[in-house]
Simulated assay, not measured.
Amino acid sequence: MKPDSLKGTFSQLLADVRTAARAQLRLLDLEAQRAGQALALMLAYGMVAGLLLCTAWLGLCAAAVLWLVERGSSASLALLLAVLLNLLVGAGLLLAMRSQARTLAFPATRQNLGSGVLLFLAWRKLRSPPPAGPS
C-alpha cells in the first residue's frame, strides 16, 4: 500500500468521524430541546392539575361542613372540624416531607466520594518517599 493511499484513507476516516460526531451532537441538541419543551408542558399540566385538586378538596370540605350542619351540628363546629382535619393532613404531609429531606443531600454519594478521597490520600502517602530526616 502506498503512503499517499494510506494518508488519503486516514484523512477520509477522520472526515467520516467528524461527520458522525456532528450528526450525533445535532441529534443530542434536538432531543435536549424536545425534552425541555416536554418538561415545560409537564410543569404547566402539573400546576393546573394541582389547582384543580385544591378546588376539589375545598369542595369536599365545604360539602362535609354542609352535611354536618344539615345533621344538626352548628356551623362553627363543622368549620372547626374541617380546619382541624386540614391541619392534621398538612402536618402529616410536612412530617413526610421532612423525612425525605435528608435524601436531597446525596448521602451515599457523599460517603462514597469521601471514602474515595481517603483511599486516594492513603495511596499517595504509600507512594511518596519518606521525608528526609535531619542530616
Rank of each mutant, 00 (worst) to 15 (best):
K2R: 04
M42E: 14
K7S: 10
P129E: 13
R18M: 07
W123F: 15
D29M: 01
V83Y: 02
P130M: 10
L30C: 09
L6Q: 12
T9F: 03
S76F: 07
A101Y: 10
Q33M: 08
P134I: 02
S115K: 11
F10N: 01
A32E: 14
L41C: 01
L41Q: 08
N112F: 09
A38E: 14
G8N: 14
L14W: 01
A35W: 06
L88D: 00
G90V: 04
A108H: 05
Y45V: 06
A122D: 12
A15S: 11
C54K: 03
G92E: 02
W67V: 01
Q24Y: 09
L66H: 11
A21G: 01
V89E: 13
L126A: 11
S128F: 10
A108G: 02
T103H: 14
A38Q: 14
A82M: 02
L41W: 01
A35R: 13
L87Q: 03
T55G: 02
L66K: 09
G90W: 12
Q33G: 04
S135N: 07
L66T: 06
A35N: 08
T19I: 05
L126R: 06
C54Q: 10
A32N: 13
A23Q: 01
K7E: 14
M97R: 05
L85Y: 04
R26L: 15
V65C: 07
R127L: 13
L81V: 07
W123H: 14
C54S: 07
G50S: 14
G92F: 06
P131N: 08
G114C: 04
N112I: 06
L121F: 10
D16A: 09
G8H: 10
N86Q: 14
A38Y: 06
S74F: 12
A75M: 13
S11G: 02
P129G: 08
S76V: 06
G50A: 15
L81F: 11
D4Q: 15
M42R: 13
S11H: 07
A21M: 08
Y45D: 15
R98C: 03
G72P: 00
G8Q: 15
L13V: 02
A96M: 10
V89C: 08
